[in-house]
């Protein structure tokens, strides 16, 4: 999986920079970024990433809503999505339980372990599977 493309959706510019750096240096990923759910949807119209990393708390269209939009398009459903969020209290996690996602990575995370965490989640993922595995960052 050399030079796979990942779409990183996060409204926080610092985070976009840090995650890009991490994945580029440690994981041989090519990282594209979007600062909102809407920008992500626009990106998807013309591109097909191998993975989407999605923040949950974003203004206007949040991560959950964006995932629901993505899921409406048959051709986008096979793209694995991983939530990367600071909202990981139990009542918040329960909201993700029925989402068609490959997993959740909690913020804050250790950048040095991020690529392997992503790899592990991707290995367990299948487009039809609904099992949610949660990777804990430490």
């Amino acid at each position: 999986m050399k030079n796979s493309t990942v779409l990183l959706v996060d409204d926080n510019a610092d985070l976009r920079k840090l995650v890009s750096k991490t994945l580029t240096c440690l994981g041989n990923w090519q990282v594209e970024t979007a600062e909102s759910g809407l920008a992500a949807l626009q990106f998807l119209e013309n591109h097909r990433p191998d993975l989407i990393l999605m923040d949950v708390s974003m203004p206007q269209m949040d991560g959950v809503a964006t995932i629901n939009e993505i899921n409406k398009r048959q051709q986008w459903r096979s793209i694995p999505i991983i939530l990367i969020t600071a909202r990981v209290q139990i009542h918040e996690m329960n909201q993700y339980r029925h989402l068609p996602i490959a997993g959740v990575i909690s913020k804050p995370f250790d950048p040095m372990k991020l690529p392997s965490q992503i790899q592990r989640l991707l290995e367990q993922w299948s487009p039809t599977g609904e099992n949610l595995r949660v990777a804990i960052s430490d």
Binding site: D14, L18, K21, P108, M112
Partner: peptide, 9 residues
């Protein structure tokens, strides 16, 4: 998250 990620890098 940013602090930890930056320091980690």
């Amino acid at each position: 998250t940013s602090i930890r990620a930056a320091l980690g890098l």
